[in-house]
Simulated assay, not measured.
Amino acid sequence: MAHPSQMGFQDATSPIMEELLYFHDHALMTVFLISTLVLHFISTMMTTKLTNINSMDAQEIEMVWTIMPAIILIVVALPSLRILYLMDEITNPHLTIKAIGHQWYWSYEITNYENLMYDSYMVPTQHLSPGQFRLLEVDNRMIVPMESPIRMLISAEDVLHSWAIPSLGIKTDAIPGRLNQTTLTSSRPGIFYGQCSEICGANHSFMPIVMEATP
Rank of each mutant, 00 (worst) to 15 (best):
N92E: 14
H127W: 14
R82H: 10
T96R: 12
R141D: 15
H94I: 12
S80Y: 07
V144Y: 03
I71L: 08
P145H: 04
S148K: 04
A70W: 00
Q59V: 08
E89T: 10
N92S: 12
G101M: 02
I143C: 01
L78G: 01
E114C: 14
P93Q: 07
H94R: 05
L135S: 14
E147K: 11
L135F: 06
Q59F: 03
V75M: 06
I71S: 01
Q126E: 13
P79T: 01
M122G: 04
A70E: 01
R134M: 15
L135M: 08
D119A: 14
P149W: 05
D88N: 06
S107G: 08
F133P: 04
H102L: 08
A99T: 06
F133D: 13
A77Q: 09
H102P: 09
I61R: 04
V75D: 01
S120D: 05
I83Q: 02
Q126P: 00
P69H: 10
G131W: 12
M117D: 04
E137W: 12
S148F: 00
D139G: 09
E89Y: 04
Y108T: 10
M68K: 14
R141Q: 11
L78F: 10
G131E: 09
M122D: 06
Y105D: 02
N112E: 15
E89C: 05
N112P: 10
F133G: 08
M122K: 09
M63T: 07
V144H: 03
E114W: 12
Y105E: 02
Q59A: 07
P79G: 01
H127M: 15
F133V: 15
E89Q: 07
Q132A: 12
P130S: 13
P124A: 07
P93G: 09
I53H: 04
I110K: 07
I100R: 04
S55Y: 12
I100H: 04
I97P: 02
S120I: 07
I53K: 11
E147G: 01
Y108P: 03
F133L: 15
M68C: 11
L135Q: 05
M56R: 14
M87H: 03
N112M: 11
N115A: 13
P79M: 10
M146Q: 06
L84A: 11
S129C: 02
I67H: 10
Q126I: 09
P93M: 08
V138R: 05
I74L: 08
Y118S: 05
W104Q: 05
I53L: 13
L73F: 08
H94G: 12
N92G: 01
E137Q: 14
E89I: 04
L116P: 01
Y118T: 06
S129M: 14
M63E: 15
V76E: 10
V144R: 00
V75T: 04
P93I: 09
L136K: 13
D119K: 15
W65A: 01
V75K: 02
T111K: 12
I53W: 05
T91L: 13
L135K: 11
P145D: 04
H127D: 15
F133M: 10
Y121V: 07
T125E: 14
I143K: 02
Y121E: 07
E137V: 14
M117C: 13
V64F: 03
Q59I: 05
G101K: 02
A58H: 08
L78Q: 08
